[in-house]
Simulated scan of single mutants.
Amino acid sequence: MSAILSQVIRRQIAISLNRSQAGVTAATAGEHSGGYKVWKRLSFFVAIPAVGLCMLNAYLKHQEEHDHPRAEFIKYEYLRRREKRFPWGEGNKSLFHNPHVNPLPDGYEH
């Protein structure tokens, strides 16, 4: 089994060496010629517009949420509990604290 596998590998190496010496690359050889054109067109006509649409969707959703007032603060016993202080700042705010969205245990900051 290993003898057959080594023969196949040697044959593939010889074929690739012959192609590289003749100036034929994998992108232009045989039935795969022109494959880069497909990927180039997919990138320009599918991927870039898709990224643009995703950016537009995110921006419009942000604008929609920005116009709404924030929810009323209700102090629940099981939410925003601080058993020990955070090791940064004053110890009451999380690392990615946003004062408009994230309330402290006593309520929103003003």
Rank of each mutant, 00 (worst) to 15 (best):
I15L: 05
E77R: 07
I13S: 08
A3R: 13
W39S: 07
S43M: 08
E77C: 07
Y76E: 15
F73Q: 14
T28L: 06
L60N: 02
G91P: 02
Q63F: 03
Y76A: 15
E83S: 08
A26P: 04
R80D: 04
H97L: 09
R82W: 04
R80Q: 07
G34P: 01
E83D: 10
P105A: 04
K37M: 12
R85P: 02
T25N: 03
L5T: 12
V51Y: 00
D67S: 07
L104R: 07
K61W: 08
N102F: 10
E31C: 09
F73S: 10
L42V: 15
Y108A: 10
L79D: 15
R82F: 06
V38E: 14
I9C: 01
V38W: 08
R85H: 04
G34C: 05
M55S: 13
D106A: 14
H32T: 15
E90G: 07
A14E: 14
D106N: 13
P87F: 00
R41P: 00
E64K: 05
L17G: 01
T25G: 06
R19C: 02
S33N: 11
A71R: 11
A27I: 07
R11Y: 11
P69F: 00
V51S: 03
G52Y: 12
L60T: 12
D106F: 14
G52N: 12
H66K: 05
S6N: 10
L17K: 05
V8S: 04
K84R: 14
F44P: 02
S16D: 07
R70S: 02
Q7H: 01
P99A: 10
Y76C: 06
Q7L: 01
V38G: 08
R81E: 15
A71I: 05
Q12H: 08
K75H: 15
L79G: 00
K61M: 07
E77K: 09
V51K: 00
A71S: 06
L42C: 05
H100K: 11
R80L: 11
H110E: 15
M55W: 09
A50W: 06
A58Y: 06
A58T: 03
R41C: 07
H97E: 13
R41A: 15
L42N: 08
S2I: 12
E64D: 14
L60I: 09
Y76F: 13
G34H: 04
H32I: 14
R70V: 06
Y78R: 06
K93F: 10
A29P: 03
L42E: 05
